[in-house]
């Protein structure tokens, strides 16, 4: 591996450590990493939009004589009138145009995708012909959906049989939220694991060459010094200033 590649990998490792330092408390190293991400992402996205959208979809066609591309360009410019208090009404025309098209495209597919397909699937009879477990799941889903709907029916007091059904509904919702929470915990741990795997790969890489190993020790030394400085600062602080 060349020095250039190694430096990029090292920068990644250092920025990872800077980001993790936030778990202790907010600090300048974390701020550097945070601002770097936001700045680089914003800059990258602007350039990307220019070269993947503006240039091939507007500038080049106009330059090639397709003058009618000026019409959507004008509509786009009209959006900027939102910044003027007096003329902000002008921006409603492109917004209306945009929403009209988006709604026209979205309604039929969303109707089929999120409503019809889901409704038909819920309404079908339990299937015990193959795996019995599938049939049991079908029944659980029907009960869960109906009871959850009862829970969201607020025109009648949740008492008696109705209250019991609503209670089954809330348990169904809680099981759903619980599974989402479980998956979220797994996702967050996954992010941490991946970063630790990357740090491990970086440490392994530093062992391949003596000059790389020196960089590793410099980084370790800086981290140890920073931790020591923080400990000394903490010890010097008066008891009243110590945050529990």
């Amino acid at each position: 591996m060349s020095w250039t590649e190694f430096l990029w990998t090292t920068l990644g490792a250092i920025l990872t450590l800077c980001t993790f330092s936030f778990l202790y408390k907010d600090n300048p190293f974390y701020k550097i990493a945070e601002h770097l991400v936001v700045g680089v992402s914003a800059g990258y996205f602007v350039i990307l939009l220019c070269f993947t959208g503006l240039m091939p979809k507007l500038i080049t066609p106009i330059m090639n004589g397709s003058w009618w591309y000026i019409i959507p360009a004008i509509l786009g410019v009209l959006m900027w009138f939102r910044f003027s208090k007096k003329l902000s009404w002008v921006s409603r025309y492109p917004i209306a145009f945009y929403i009209g098209i988006a709604t026209g495209v979205a309604i039929p597919v969303e109707m089929k995708n999120r409503i019809n397909s889901q409704l038909f699937d819920t309404m079908k009879a339990p299937n015990f012909s193959g795996d019995w477990f599938v049939g049991v799941c079908d029944i659980i889903i029907i009960i869960g959906v109906v009871c959850s709907l009862f829970y969201f029916f607020f025109s009648k007091e949740h008492k008696g049989v109705f209250g019991g059904l609503a209670k089954v509904g809330i348990y169904t919702l809680m099981i759903g939220f619980g599974s989402s929470f479980g998956y979220t915990v797994m996702a967050r741990i996954s992010l941490f694991i991946q970063r630790v795997q990357e740090l491990r790969n970086w440490v392994t890489l530093t062992k391949t060459r003596t000059d790389f190993t020196i960089v590793l020790w410099v980084v370790v030394l800086v981290i140890v010094l920073l931790i020591l400085m923080e400990i000394i600062k903490h010890l010097k602080r008066k008891p009243a200033e110590t945050v529990s």
Binding site: S117, Q118, D121, G176, S180, Y183, A187
Partner: peptide, 17 residues
């Protein structure tokens, strides 16, 4: 999909989408 989103997409699996 990411873990955070996984639970939301099971209905699409059941309906065959």
């Amino acid at each position: 999909v990411t873990g955070v989103m996984a639970a939301d997409y099971y209905p699409y699996l059941r309906s065959g989408q």
